[in-house]
Design a binder for these strands. Sequence first.
DNA 1: GGTGAAAGATTAGAAGG
DNA 2: CCTTCTAATCTTTCACC
Lengths: 164, 164
Amino acid sequence: MSNQNSEPAPRPVDEIDLALLRALQADARAPIGTLSDAAGVSRATAYARLARLREEGIITALTVTVHPKRVGLGVSAVVLIRSTPDNWKTWSSMLPILEAMDEVEYAADLAGEVDLLLLVRLRDVEHLQRFVTEELRGRIPGIGSVRTLLVLNQTPERSLVLPS
Amino acid sequence: MSNQNSEPAPRPVDEIDLALLRALQADARAPIGTLSDAAGVSRATAYARLARLREEGIITALTVTVHPKRVGLGVSAVVLIRSTPDNWKTWSSMLPILEAMDEVEYAADLAGEVDLLLLVRLRDVEHLQRFVTEELRGRIPGIGSVRTLLVLNQTPERSLVLPS
DNA sequence: GGTGAAAGATTAGAAGG
DNA sequence: CCTTCTAATCTTTCACC
């Protein structure tokens, strides 16, 4: 995976692209005919558009969203990390490390009182403890403080709401 | 959408289910034959399993993941909210309000020094300002402090890493 | 439960205007 | 961007293990 903020947007998407993306958000397995109807274009056009959206990286992935608890990941947590001024790695050097951790679903480099935020998915609280003490402090240099916030309730994962 | 933490897991998924889910994570538009091959079962079985996974809510959605910047959402931010002890609504009463806000991609009710975390996607910084001052403070009662952290860099959205 | 086969209907993917 | 084409795939249903 590449850094999501690195490349600028060369060509903006138009209304047809947005309609296709919205239709895919509703059902990624919808047949092309359904998608093309939703966008008001022919199937061939929908094909061409989808290929372009994939090539240009506008479509990051076509995936399934899974209920975490039902697959053995009963605990979610938000980890807020502050760095020590020295020995703190750059984002680009940490990215591969973070992505190699199965527990990390989302990581963000922040401006403000917190330097790094992680959303992690774990089997249980013991798993959380091991993750923070061993994985995190062991592998990421320059960690100052770590605050772990248990998730009590959360929205189901949802896609971006595309602008109109 | 329903609360993701409300229902217990009645029946656990098995290895075949996990294999199907992993194949769908890689490509949600993969033909059934590809999915059934990946899981080592027949197509008929893959059909039956997928129907069951949908019915039981283990599959939350089959969606497309989009690069936010390329669709006009150039700014991401994390909003940390602390409540005032009085007038703070319950999670279940806030959920529909939060889900009605297009800017909110993810919301979590937290245990700890922060009560509510939002991941928001916005067009620009002006949009962020309007969101925090008007949408948030205007619609959610009982907000104590609001800390807004700009996202400088982030991982692309990624699916859960399913356990083995 | 899972299998393999059969069946028509639908869709995919490419070619050409 | 559309229409047209053939091969491939979908999806259900079946009898059987």
